[in-house]
């Protein structure tokens, strides 16, 4: 496998300017100091709970955040900064989004046309996903759930995208249907694409992704190899360990406390208030990521 980094995100923060009560405006930081990179031919899963802001990571990379968002940090694509004009050229071609739901499709346009204006390309993409040619002439409402999912994937592959960002591609799917959708992403990665898979279903991601970036309270606390998720001693960050122990398959043991959210984030390590290894050192500053056993972790004490 080539080791070329397609996308790297360093120290990304996203905040929203909002009205609180009355006229006071406040800034809510939803993503803070997030680091992630994805290489050619690899699937990296960003796993975190629903509503914790991980979709915003996809929107930030694609530059489709709403107007009141304030973004800082750097996003590099193939080694050079991903600027607004560059993004405009790449979006939908080299960088593709597989959206969360069908609502991203135009309900009044035939799906073939939405996938691409190039008929031959549509045909090839549809063939790949075992969609009949006639499906290109259907409107979104005429498709079944499974077909819809395949059409969304087809939109991503039609342009030979080098970077595919999938935002919760399997909500509410049965295990085998979700597995099949994941297989599609695996195939795309094996064909050379870099895939960022944003999901809340860590169980499912484990079977198909190469690496897992664990998302907690708006940041990635650890990037681990998928194979590390076989025993909690292989994992690096206390949160990931806690996550592992809480899975129904291995213990179902909860850790006390709740995830902090925008507006009430603690200083220093975001997991510190719930961590039993916490020291004074954990309660201030930015905890920079560091390499530990082929993974990255934002914890002063991980080994």
């Amino acid at each position: 496998m080539e080791n070329k980094i397609v996308l790297s995100v360093n120290g990304l923060s996203v905040a929203f300017k909002m009205y609180g009560k009355g006229f006071a405006r406040k800034e809510l930081r939803v993503i803070s100091n997030l680091n992630i990179n994805v290489r050619k031919g690899e699937i990296i899963a960003v796993a975190g709970s629903s509503g914790s802001g991980k979709s915003l990571l996809a929107h930030a990379i694609l530059g489709i955040l709403p107007g009141n968002a304030v973004v800082s940090g750097e996003i590099n694509y193939c080694g050079t900064p991903l600027t607004e004009p560059r993004l405009r050229k790449l979006r939908g071609k080299e960088i593709a989004l597989v959206p969360q739901s069908v609502e991203y499709l135009d309900p009044l346009m035939k799906v073939g046309k939405q996938v691409s204006a190039d008929k031959a390309a549509v045909k090839a993409a549809f063939e790949r996903y075992k969609l009949a040619d006639s499906a290109a002439n259907l409107f979104p409402f005429q498709l079944s759930g499974g077909m819809m999912r395949r059409v969304l994937c087809a939109t991503a592959v039609v342009g030979n995208a080098k970077l595919i960002i999938a935002d919760e591609p399997t909500p509410g799917m049965s295990k085998d249907l979700a597995g099949r959708a994941m297989k599609h992403f695996r195939d795309l990665a094996d064909a050379g694409a870099a895939v960022i898979l944003i999901t809340h279903d860590i169980d499912l991601a484990l079977g198909y992704a190469d690496r897992i970036a664990v998302f907690y309270a708006g940041t990635t606390v650890e990037t681990a190899l998928a194979s590390d998720f076989t025993d909690d001693s292989l994992l690096r960050h206390p949160y990931t360990k806690a996550l592992w122990r809480a899975m129904p398959g291995n213990g179902f043991r909860p850790t006390a406390g709740t995830q902090p959210y925008a507006g009430s984030l603690p200083e220093g390590c975001l997991f510190a208030p719930r961590c039993d290894k916490k020291t004074q050192e954990c309660t201030y500053g930015i905890i920079e990521p560091r390499e530990v056993r082929n993974g990255e972790v934002c914890c002063r004490y991980a080994s």
């Binding site: 809480a246 179902f252 909860p254 006390a256």
Partner: peptide, 13 residues
């Protein structure tokens, strides 16, 4: 379903 696994374990407990 919409919760992270730790919260899931907490709530079920």
């Amino acid at each position: 379903t919409m919760l992270d696994v730790i919260t899931q374990a907490q709530i079920w407990e």
